[in-house]
Design a protein around this nucleic acid. Structure first.
Length: 98
DNA sequence: GCTCTGACGATTT
DNA sequence: GAAATCGCCAGAG
């Protein structure tokens, strides 16, 4: 099950860093499943256990969030991630997951 | 089990 | 460089 892996990997993402849907998909062995990954996070069963707000789009844009992108950005800043013009600074993007 | 959906990605206007 | 287009995959109905 892809969802299981995704959640597992997400928990490994350190605070102050973010990752992309693509990297996440690649990490589970399916680089093209980025879309599916987003779909999974969207239906995220445990918003507390899984830091889904640390996942952004590969182009640097924030992407979506159940509580709204605004809230998402807010959370990221709180963790030390800088975002300008709705774009995540690439320096904070963890493209390789463990 | 088939069809539709979507928090995406890369490419092409 | 922004917007539309096509392709991809895993869940949900």
């Amino acid at each position: 099950m892809l969802a299981e892996k995704v959640y597992g990997l997400l928990k490994r993402i350190p605070s102050g860093k973010v990752t992309t849907y693509k990297a996440l998909a690649a990490a589970v062995g399916n680089p093209k499943a980025s879309r599916a990954v987003g779909n999974i996070l969207n239906k995220n069963p445990d918003l507390i256990k899984v830091p889904c707000h640390r996942v952004v789009r590969s182009d640097g844009s924030v992407g979506g969030y159940v509580l709204g992108t605004t809230q998402k950005i807010k959370l990221l800043w709180r963790e030390g991630v800088e975002i300008y013009a709705g774009k995540i600074r690439k320096h904070f993007i963890l493209e390789k997951i463990r």
